[in-house]
């Protein structure tokens, strides 16, 4: 794409100070084609991420190294359109999925729940890498892990239903975050102590922006491991836990 008609921007030297799209020049009063296409491509990545689907087979394959049982679950939102329009349905397990989670008598320490959220791409790409570091840390610390759960069309609060169904003391939910223009593959980790249906965000701790160009797996795994230990020690999660966590920003 040649842009010989575009007027060079006098502010090029200021670009180092911000990731904002400054100094993009102009043709007439309009954005030059090159910058216009860059924007369009970034938006295309974000849109594709919203409509991406959980790679169930790929994830099962990558997660089998942990030798844990695995459940494939679904929310009450039948499809992506419903999911986007009705966040309440994305927080509830479908009846079939609920059936799968009955008859749990053991009390595992941690339930690990992998949810597509607003970017399945994010968990497809980042969940296995994070768990490869985190699961050995948990196992070494004698923290027991419930069957792994893969959830389609889910939102954060669906983890409360699932973890309480599994009788877990704590839930760790990995979910695709709302894609931004610069990051379509950002994964969030939500930690909830004593998960029960009806909890809200202030009872959780969140670690955001887990991805190759954001928070690295090793750093994220260590933060999560630290938080899980603190959470068990103090028997809580959420706002109160965050205040005293030295490792957290």
């Amino acid at each position: 794409m040649k842009d010989k008609l575009s007027i060079p921007d006098p502010l090029i030297s200021l670009k180092e100070f911000t990731a904002a799209r400054i100094a993009i020049g102009r043709v007439g009063n309009s954005i030059p084609l090159k910058q216009s296409m860059e924007f369009k491509l970034a938006h295309a990545h974000a849109r594709d991420a919203v409509y991406s689907t959980l790679d169930v087979d790929g994830l099962i394959n990558k997660l089998k190294v942990f030798e844990l049982p695995l459940f494939h679950l679904h929310s009450q939102a039948a499809n992506r359109q419903k999911y986007l329009k009705r966040p309440d349905l994305g927080r509830l397990l479908s009846d079939e999925s609920k059936e799968l989670l009955t008859d749990f008598t053991t009390k595992p320490d941690v339930a690990i729940i992998i949810v597509d959220g607003l970017s399945a791409t994010a968990v497809n790409e980042n969940a296995p890498g994070l768990l490869k570091i985190l699961v050995p840390l948990l196992t070494a610390a004698k923290i027991s892990i419930a069957p792994l759960c893969l959830v389609e069309q889910g939102r954060v609060a669906i983890g409360d239903d699932i973890a309480s169904g599994l009788n877990a003391k704590l839930s760790l939910l990995l979910i695709g975050e709302r894609p931004g223009l610069s990051s379509a593959d950002s994964m969030g980790a939500y930690l909830t102590y004593n998960p029960q249906p009806g909890l809200t965000d202030e009872s959780r701790n969140c670690i955001s922006n887990i991805r190759k160009e954001g928070m690295k797996y090793k750093q994220a795994a260590e933060k999560i491991f630290y938080l899980i230990n603190e959470s068990f020690k103090r028997k809580l999660s959420g706002v109160a836990l965050k205040d005293n966590a030295g490792l957290l920003r």
Partner: peptide, 25 residues
């Protein structure tokens, strides 16, 4: 008016400086 429509803090898209110039013109 936001550089290139892309708010890098709030993570949403609004109108650019160029958009306002388009409308004025």
């Amino acid at each position: 008016g936001i550089p290139g429509s892309d708010d890098i803090m709030l993570n949403y898209q609004s109108t650019s400086f160029h958009d306002a110039l388009y409308l004025r013109k």
